[in-house]
Design a protein around this nucleic acid. Structure first.
Lengths: 242, 242
DNA sequence: GCTTTTTGTTTTGCATGCAAAATGCTAGGC
DNA sequence: GCCTAGCATTTTGCATGCAAAACAAAAAGC
C-alpha cells in the first residue's frame, strides 16, 4: 500500500497542520482521537514517520506524545521496537470494570453528600434530556448526555484525583463505545438505572447511589464486552477470508 | 551560583552515568527516586539543564522521562515554564486516601476469593516477620514488609489494571513515608489491623477484608497527614527564620 | 521612591542529524 | 525444498542546534 491512502479512509482529505497551543499536548489529543475513532487499529504499529508527515511535525513532539499515551495505557511502548496501539481485549475490560465500578461507586457516595442544589438541577436537566434522546432513539446524543451526567457526578464528588483516574480508564474503553450497539432492552434498562441514579442523588443516599452506580457500570461493561466480542469475531472472519 | 554545587548538597559526589537499559526509562526510575528521597524538593522547579549534566544525558530523553512522570502525577508540567515537582499537600492526601481505600478494598475482595494456598502462606510468612520487626522496633524493616504484604494482596487480586492504578497513587505518597514517624500507639494499632487482615484473608471473607483494608488505609493516611503537617510546620519555621 | 518599560539572559520547545538496533530480503548451504 | 546466514533498508533512540517564550534586571518615567 502506498503511504496513507489506505488508512486515512477519506476522513482526512488534506494534511492536518494543527493550529494552536502546546504542540505535544495537541498531538496527544489528536492521537487519542485517532485511536478512539479506530483509525489507528489496535495491535498495529504506530507509524512514527507517517504521522510526522501527516501532522507536519517533527518526531520529537510526537515521541513525547506517545510517551504520554503509553503512560495512559492507550499505546504500548516496546524498547527499540516502537509503539503499538494497545489492543483492548475482553480480558482487559473484565479487569477494568470492577475498578471503574469501585471508583464510580466512591464518586457517587461523595457526590451524594457534596453536590449542590444547582449541581443537582444540572444533572436533572441532563437526565431528562437524555431520556428524551432515548425515546427518540438517538443513540449518539444519548451517549453524549450519558457521559456528561457521569462527568457531572464525578465533578460533584470534588475529588480531582478520583476524576483523573476514572477518566483515564474511561478513555481506554471509549474506543469500544464506537462499536457498541446496545440492544433495545439493554438500553431501556440503562435508562431505568439512570432514573434510580437520579433518585438516589436527589435523596442524597450515598451508599445506595454507590451500589446503583456499581451495578450500572457492570451492565455498561457487559455492553462493551459484547461489542468487543462482535469486533473480534469480525476480525477473525476477515482473517479467514484472506 | 555556579552550576550545580549548591543544590546537589554533597549527596552525589561524582557524576552518575547510569548503566544499562532504555535510557529514558532509567531516567524515569532515577528521577522517581530523587523525588521520593526528597532530593528534589516539592514545589521547586526541576532544573533540566542541571540534571542533564548530572546524568550525562541530553535533554531529549530527560524531557521524555519528565513527560512520563507528569502523567504519573509526580511532577507538574506548565507550558513554556518547565516542570515543577508536584507538592503533596494535605488536601492531596485527603483526596487520595478515599480513592486508595476503594481500590484496596476491591483488591481485598478479589484477593480473598482468588488467592492460592501458597499465596496465603507467603502473606502469612511476611506478616509474622513484620510482627517481629514491630516487636523489635525496626521501623524501616517493618515498612518494607508492610509494603510487600499489600503488594502480595494486590497481586493475588489478579488485576494488573487495579494494581497499576494503586501503585501509581502509592508512589505519589511514598515520599511522605520518608518523614512519617508513627507513634507507638498508632503502630500497635496498625499491627492489630494487619492481624485482622490476615484473619479475613485466611477466612476468605472478601467483604470483611475489604472493609478492614479500607479502614486500615484510613489510619495509614492519617499517619501520612500528620507527617506532612509536621513537614509543613517545619518549612514555615524555616521560612520565618530566614 | 515607586511603578513601568525595555533589554539581556536563561530556559523551553521543536527540528534535524547520526549511530545503533531491528526488520526484511536475498543468497548460500544442507 | 527448507532452513540459515549475511546484507541492505528501515526504524528507533539520543544528541545537538536554533528560534521563541519566559524570567530577571536595569533604566526610564511619574
Amino acid at each position: 500500500m502506498d503511504t496513507d491512502s489506505a488508512k486515512n479512509g477519506g476522513l482526512t482529505p488534506f494534511s492536518e497542520p494543527v493550529a494552536r497551543g502546546a504542540l505535544h499536548d495537541r498531538l496527544v489529543a489528536r492521537l487519542r482521537d485517532l485511536i478512539i475513532e479506530g483509525e489507528l487499529s489496535p495491535g498495529t504499529r504506530v507509524p512514527e514517520r507517517e504521522l510526522c508527515q501527516r501532522f507536519q511535525v517533527s518526531r520529537t513532539p510526537l515521541r513525547e506524545a506517545l510517551k504520554v499515551l503509553a503512560a495512559d495505557g492507550l499505546v504500548q511502548l516496546a524498547p527499540n521496537r516502537g509503539a503499538r496501539v494497545a489492543a483492548l481485549t475482553v480480558a482487559d475490560v473484565e479487569e477494568m470494570f470492577p475498578v471503574m465500578g469501585a471508583l464510580e461507586a466512591l464518586a457517587g457516595e461523595l457526590a451524594a453528600s457534596r453536590i449542590t442544589e444547582e449541581g443537582l438541577a444540572e444533572v436533572r436537566a441532563l437526565h431528562y434530556q437524555m431520556v428524551l434522546h432515548h425515546k427518540r432513539g438517538e443513540l449518539a446524543a444519548y451517549f453524549r448526555l450519558n457521559q456528561q451526567i457521569h462527568e457531572k457526578i464525578l465533578a460533584a464528588a470534588g475529588n480531582p484525583t478520583l476524576a483523573a483516574l476514572y477518566q483515564g480508564l474511561a478513555g481506554r474503553i471509549r474506543r469500544a463505545r464506537y462499536l457498541a450497539n446496545m440492544s433495545g432492552r439493554r438500553w431501556a434498562r440503562a435508562v431505568e438505572e439512570h432514573e434510580a441514579i437520579l433518585a438516589a442523588l436527589e435523596a442524597r443516599a450515598g451508599a445506595r447511589l454507590g451500589a446503583i452506580l456499581k451495578d450500572h457500570l457492570k451492565n455498561k461493561c457487559e455492553t462493551v464486552k459484547e461489542g468487543l466480542l462482535a469486533e473480534e469475531d469480525e476480525a477473525a472472519q476477515a482473517a479467514s477470508n484472506t
